[in-house]
Design a binder for these strands. Structure first.
Length: 502
RNA sequence: GGCCCCAUCGUCUAACGGUCAGGACGCGAGGUUUUCAACCUCGAAAUCGGAGUUCGAUUCUCCGUGGGGUCACCA
């Protein structure tokens, strides 16, 4: 038997388990995929075990430049840490499958020697021909007896360099029973299985071979993956048996579904982890949310990283497939934004605004200004990217006065002249305030008094002032905003609005 | 279609045979309020259907229905 288990440890699902995340570097990880990584990590850590990252780059044609780095970046952003991996190594390395080819070849040699596998020289055309024929005869579509070549002949042809694959010789009869941690025993009739490919003609292993060889070699105790793998489970069970290896435990998680049904895809607004990061979601939000869909723990909705690290158990995940709830994700993000320490929020806001504010606004942004604005909007945004449209007026030297139909609502509709006159009075009064009195409470007092004087409700007057000063119908709290914008600019803007309305 | 998996409010979930079937998002009503949020109170909303087992089924069994996965030299 090639490459045995380096450790004869007796680990179990709940005693120093070893779990792995094995992405193939074909693109950015999406939420369903990364959830698998998060869960594996949480489970491993909960029980004092190890979390391993292994790159499954066995499909050369689908490999994508830089995908490996973006996968690791996604994990880091979420706060997922690994004990062994392609970047940091470990005693079971290498952690990149394309660097483990010899191991797979050794295993193939063993199987061939034991007559548990066979070389297959069939062309793709021949294979589709077989499938069509079987389908016409209402037989299982899998490839079984495609070529009848003696092992000697096969070895000769292979030695001569003839391209071929190596297939597993799946038993024709009997039943293969495999166990899923969440569903119990699942049995499959061997007659419905096929002679699946282990080694491709380019010398790379298929997932089936690589999974069995590596998860054994790396001493993985619990394999977690999506339920799309359940149908391949008997193949893996048979392979472990063929090598004489103990089978690991398996937990197949359900798929995350799109709101309309079906698999979640980009079309449904599903984004990669890094895209969520760019759009202003907080890592703690996504971490919490990923565990909220497909898992639950009593009445609890909010889970900190530490909560999850001490509560999560792979055995508690939900069997039914969950629908991705964008609304709840957004709500959750707002909740986490509000919970941020003031200074953390301020610095995060600053980074966001440096990105989102118009290019003509000089960088770096003024820290004191950011710090005074931050508390005004912290509880008003759901995404960090919501901030800019709420606060851009603080940086504009000049704001465009909205058209009358937007400016004049309710009480002021079709009463531009009155509005104009009112604003003129407001600007005059504000102008009388001394610089020392240009504070939130004094501005508020002045405007409330003036409203009373004019026989207006406070809201009626303030809606006018708000639009004039911020250019918006909806804004951060007005008095605070006015204090920050400063007397000169405020008065200037109100005068401008007044004349625009006259 | 074959094989396999799954099934509690619209959505995410809790209830390991006995609960007025709980919580969260969203939704509705009210309160608070300078806009918008936030916050507070209240409300509507579910065990897919049918047989069993049991004193008693959301929970166990079977059938049906519905949804999903898979049938590659992709993972």
């Amino acid at each position: 038997m090639p490459a045995g288990n380096p450790n004869e440890s007796k680990r179990t699902r709940t005693d120093r388990p070893r779990l792995r995340y094995a992405p193939s570097p074909t693109g950015d990880p999406h939420v369903g995929n990364i959830r698998q990584a998060v869960w594996s990590w949480l489970h491993a850590k909960r029980y004092g075990g190890d979390f391993i990252v292994r790159l499954e780059d066995t499909d050369q044609s689908r490999a994508q430049e830089g995908a490996d780095k973006r996968i690791l970046d996604s994990l880091r952003w979420l706060g997922v840490e690994w004990d062994e991996g392609p970047d940091i190594g470990g005693k079971y390395g290498p952690y990149i499958q394309s660097q483990r080819l010899d191991l797979y070849h050794d295993h193939i040699a063993t199987l061939l020697k034991n007559n548990a596998a066979r070389r297959c020289f069939c062309s793709p055309d021949r294979l589709t021909e077989i499938r069509e024929e079987q389908q016409a005869n209402k037989l299982p579509p899998g490839i079984r007896d495609c070529c009848d070549i003696s092992p000697e002949d096969a070895n000769t042809r292979a030695a001569a360099g003839e391209p071929h694959v190596v297939r597993f010789k799946t038993p024709r009869e009997g039943t293969t029973v495999a166990t899923d941690l969440l569903r119990g025993d699942i049995s499959f009739e061997n007659s419905t299985l096929d002679d699946f490919v282990l080694l491709k003609s380019d010398g790379f292993p298929t997932y089936h071979l690589a999974h069995v060889v590596d998860d054994h070699a790396m001493d993985i105790t619990l394999v977690t993956r999506g339920e799309e793998w359940i149908s391949s489970l008997p193949r893996h069970a048979l392979l472990f048996d063929a090598f004489g290896y103990d089978r690991p435990e398996y937990a197949h998680a359900s798929v995350i579904r799109a709101p309309g049904g079906g698999k979640l895809s980009k079309r449904d607004g599903a984004k990669s982890v890094l895209e969520y990061a760019e759009e202003g979601y907080l890592p703690e939000t996504l971490l919490n949310f990923l565990c909220l869909t497909g898992w639950g723990h009593g009445d609890q909705t909010l889970f900190s990283r530490d909560d999850l690290l001490s509560l999560f158990d792979m055995g508690d995940i939900t069997l039914a497939s969950a629908t991705f709830d964008h609304e709840k994700l957004a709500w959750l993000n707002g909740t986490y934004i509000r919970a941020l320490e003031e200074d953390i929020f301020a610095s995060s806001l600053r980074r966001r605004l440096e990105l989102d504010l118009p290019v003509d606004v000089p960088r770096p942004l003024d820290d004191a200004l950011i710090e005074s604005i931050a508390p005004l909007i912290q509880e008003r945004i759901t995404l960090m990217t919501d901030a800019v449209s709420l606060v851009d007026f603080f940086w504009q030297s000049q704001i465009d006065t909205p058209p009358p139909e937007d400016f004049l609502t309710k009480k002021w509709r079709d009463r531009g002249r009155e509005a104009s006159a009112t604003l003129a009075q407001v600007s005059a009064r504000l102008n009388d305030l001394t610089d020392a009195s240009w504070t939130t409470p004094e501005i508020e007092q002045l405007l409330r008094n003036l409203a009373e004087e004019l026989g207006l409700k406070a809201g009626e007057l303030l809606s006018l002032v708000r639009t004039a000063v911020t250019g918006k119908r909806i804004s951060p709290p007005l008095f605070e905003s006015m204090e920050i914008v400063g007397k000169g600019l405020v008065v200037e803007r109100i005068i401008a609005a007044s004349s625009a309305l006259s």
